[in-house]
Simulated assay, not measured.
Amino acid sequence: MTEQEFHKLRFPIGEFQKPEKIDAKHIANWIETIENLPSSILNLTEKLSEVELNYKYRPEGWTIKQVVHHCADSHINSITRFKLALTEHRPAIRPYFEDRFAKLSDYDEPLDSSISILKGVHQKLGILLKGLNDEELKREFVHPEYGKIYTIEETIGVYAWHSNHHLAHIKQAITGKGKYN
């Protein structure tokens, strides 16, 4: 497999591209994507067998189960990051080792708990994000892992992309029918 083919499997929708100017339409579309993630995941996974839930989306990639559990963990962190940025001056957020989380025992369990987490977190995210004014959208946090400052508005886009990115992984794994296991 070429490096380009591997990159396409890893990033089936491409990497996040921040628009030059983020406008209200971007924000509204991104929030809608974020709000829809739990039902989109449920629609893709609810009829899958245990064997299918363990399909990988690429060589050395995660299983569908791991992807769903990761989304729950990641988006728990996202709401915390948003709230820190809204309540503190340019806080440094805490990164975590996603790859190590994916090896923990809860990632082997059924998806029910992570789907429940996603439903609750995404409902709260929708409420929180829709209520932000222009000044709040410009608030910032520091991501020490990347040494970069992110605005809330950009981060809304990143999490919408993240939602679509992992939905594409799930679809890729289903279509691949275990060929990467």
Rank of each mutant, 00 (worst) to 15 (best):
G14A: 08
K8N: 13
E15R: 13
I41H: 04
E32Q: 14
K177D: 01
H26C: 09
K65T: 01
K177H: 04
K138E: 14
R100Q: 15
C71L: 15
E109V: 05
E3P: 08
R58S: 05
K138Y: 07
K56P: 05
Y146Q: 15
G61C: 07
I27D: 09
A85Y: 04
L86Y: 12
D106E: 10
Q172E: 08
Y57V: 01
E35C: 11
R10C: 11
R58P: 00
E136Q: 15
D106Y: 14
P38R: 11
D112H: 10
D106R: 14
N181Q: 11
S40Q: 14
P38H: 06
V51A: 09
S49Y: 04
K124G: 01
K119Y: 13
T45K: 01
Q172W: 01
P12T: 07
R100M: 13
F97L: 06
F82P: 09
V158M: 13
A85W: 08
I156N: 12
L137S: 02
S74T: 14
L42Q: 13
D112M: 06
S113N: 03
K21T: 14
L44S: 08
N54H: 10
H70V: 05
F97P: 10
E135I: 13
T2L: 04
L104W: 07
K130Q: 15
Y150Q: 06
K56Q: 15
K177I: 00
E109W: 02
R139Y: 07
V51N: 13
Y180D: 00
V121S: 03
D112N: 11
H143R: 07
V158G: 01
E50T: 08
H26E: 07
K83S: 11
E46A: 03
F141H: 14
V158D: 04
